[in-house]
Nucleic acid binder design. Structure first.
Lengths: 235, 235, 235, 235
DNA sequence: AATTAAGCGAGACGGTACGTCGCGTCTTAAG
DNA sequence: CTTAAGACGCGACGTACCGTCTCGCTTAATT
């Protein structure tokens, strides 16, 4: 019963948050600031996001959502494109810091791990699919551990952006992609391989789709509470 | 001129900070807390560290300082050891958050970038030397880009610890090292990665379905903590 | 709108402040102290009083609020009573210092001037009325400048308490009242002042001679510190 | 033995202090500030003045030292001149605040009472002499209590400058002098003002009654001024 | 239609830490 | 024994956000 939630709240809040983030950095992205700019009451904000960190996670999710990268036939080029946009997105100082804050907060708020995971997946999914296709096409060795390749590709980018403090250059990205592909048995630039085994270890079907950002909100409009993230035994 | 600085201040502060960190997490690692515990005046602390974040950076540096890793003749084993200890060190929940906080703060305090860089180098230097020796020995291809290899090795570890939210398992580390060495032309590196265990993709059990946030560890059913998180030995 | 202010906050704060003032002097009358004693959050206190000085002003106002002085038919006696209680109130060391602090702060916070003005009026109003009545009754000359008379009466009291550093004695008050009334054309005022006691200048134990300014410096050739001016009991 | 004191220290310190006072008010008149501006070490300053307040007292003494007022045959004119210069000197906001700070500090440092006393005497001495001469000349009634007259003259000036917060106008000074002289039996005292006191108490812009003491709080329920928290007997 | 259960804006509140300022003391080295 | 330099302990300042808590009003769905 009762009055229904105003759907506009969330949108207005995130818009304002994005603007604050862009204008003044993640340090200025406070609940009070969003409330002040939007006229939304703090109470209302806290009804959606139980914690500032949860709000940040949602903002980060929106900020890092990738533009749909068109896939071509050139695997290396596609990967370079994906890493390039990731580097660019994370390269904005405010975004890297935003991500870092969520990471830091995830120590106190275990449910943020889910959000963080989703954050990673946002960028990961498309690339995973591209790699899987390459395996199916035979351009990558059958049996290639796609997740591991993903880690080798994405890891260095995060490392540089977050820890080292520089944004990977296009040249760096190129060298990185080449090195990783070489290790994964990708035949240089030639198009050999062709047939071969279609069977890779497709066992990572968390190929995105999700990237929903769920788990950030206190409860949803129509109420599926976010999955309990603590009780989930793995065999 | 003037009264010389009391060297004990720094030592006592860092000791106390480390204890607070271990006991209550990085959120409790407060300038006030350190002052209260040590009897050092806040102003004195601020004379050394202009900001809480600077203090955190120093603490992180100390916390991540590598134990002297003995190098053997087995390159892959040495790398596995290095990554293992890094994963373990970062794996302590408090440390990952600590690092993340410093990253977040570095957006506001550009001088922290240097500290952050140093933070990365703490672990990087020894491994770099080991790789350089391998190149000199001819075990790695002559023109190998050592820094790039380092990125490929360390990046995924940071990625998992910070963003994905799990601690790399020994098995994961082994596969990673093998894959990277294979790409760098290490004789036998590619072999071992392929034949040995790669197939079933152990180490990534979070194969989708939910972005659950649960760890990626390949630990046994229920309780066993994935790796020894206290002793930093390599298997 | 919004949550209404808790009226108890103000009361509890001022109660505690008065107690601190009485127990430890105005130097100990700290925002932190009041917060600690009352359990009121510092931020809440600062919402009411934007500055420590503003709090002091309110406390001073309360401390100097006059008890309702019963007026009689004897003008001189009434004035003596009023001045006597004023002298007593200001005479408490803590109160004089309190007032002085507000005066000092009013240089930085112009809005305190209003508070200060009110502080003066607290004591002034009743006496003003009494004088006006005397004018109406014909006991004071018709055109008497009541404000000027007030200044002549109150001014010397403030002067002694604040600057000279002693508390006016009843005898001094009697002579002052007589002298001022004589000037204002009060019948018999001049008489009583003359014959009674005036002669020997009792009440002023220091007739100047030097304006040396000594006593400020730590050491000196052999200075006798000036006579103690504090012991001056009033019956 | 040892190195002799540098006499220039005191002079340089006071010069700098006076400049700080004039430029930034008494709030900025800090020991550190003086040290910084002069290059004098804090230690050295504290060797001369055991406390900031002591330094302030010395500065105040210098700031309030009267220019030698030439005495004429016109008693009233001389007094007007003396009070006028006093009002001007104290009228500078910085000076009144300075004096107030010393008064406030004198509660904690009893030795400052002497300095304070001297401060009062600076202005008092010359006027006292002038009054004494008038008594000797027979222009004031023999037996006049000179100290009391001084109090009546100076008291209102201090009262206005410190408590009321305005600077006495020349007109106010004239009326005050006339009133006091009239009370002291000065022939023609009432005359000099041409028409006596007249209606309108110019110089008092507030006849009380309003200005309740509001304006201290940020805002408030517009209630009654806080209850008297002290009990106060009248002698 | 009256009731009722939210949602919402407003803003006070308790709490914790921040980073700063000034005091007065001290330690050292230089003269 | 004085001076400059400056670190140090101490204590308070005023500020910033956090997340919680009344309020009073608005908006549907339920009685």
């Amino acid at each position: 019963m009762g009055r229904p939630r105003d759907a506009g709240v969330e949108r207005r809040a995130l818009d304002a948050a994005a603007r604050v983030l862009a204008d003044h950095g993640h340090g200025a992205l406070t609940v009070d600031a969003v409330a002040a700019r939007t006229g939304i009451a703090k109470t209302t904000l806290y009804r959606r996001w139980p914690t500032r960190a949860h709000l940040l996670a949602t903002v980060a999710h929106a900020a890092l959502a990738p533009p749909s990268t068109g896939a071509t036939d050139d695997l290396a080029a596609d990967l370079r494109g994906a890493l390039g946009t990731l580097a660019t997105a994370l390269g904005r100082a405010s975004h890297a810091g935003l991500l870092a804050e969520v990471v830091a907060a995830s120590a106190h708020h275990p449910d943020l791990r889910a959000a963080l995971h989703a954050l990673g997946e946002v960028r990961r999914a498309a690339t995973r699919d591209r790699l899987a296709r390459a395996v199916a096409d035979g351009r990558l060795a059958p049996g290639t551990d796609v997740e591991l390749v993903l880690d080798q590709l994405l890891g260095p980018v995060y490392l540089h952006v977050l820890v080292v403090g520089d944004t990977p250059t296009p040249d760096y990205v190129r060298r990185l992609v080449d090195a990783v592909l070489a290790g994964a048995g990708h035949p240089g630039g030639a198009r050999s391989g062709r047939g071969g085994s279609g069977r890779g270890d497709v066992g990572h079907e968390d190929s995105g789709r999700g990237s929903s950002g769920r788990g950030l909100h206190s409860d949803g409009p129509a109420g599926t509470p976010p999955a309990d993230t603590t009780s989930e035994g793995s065999p």
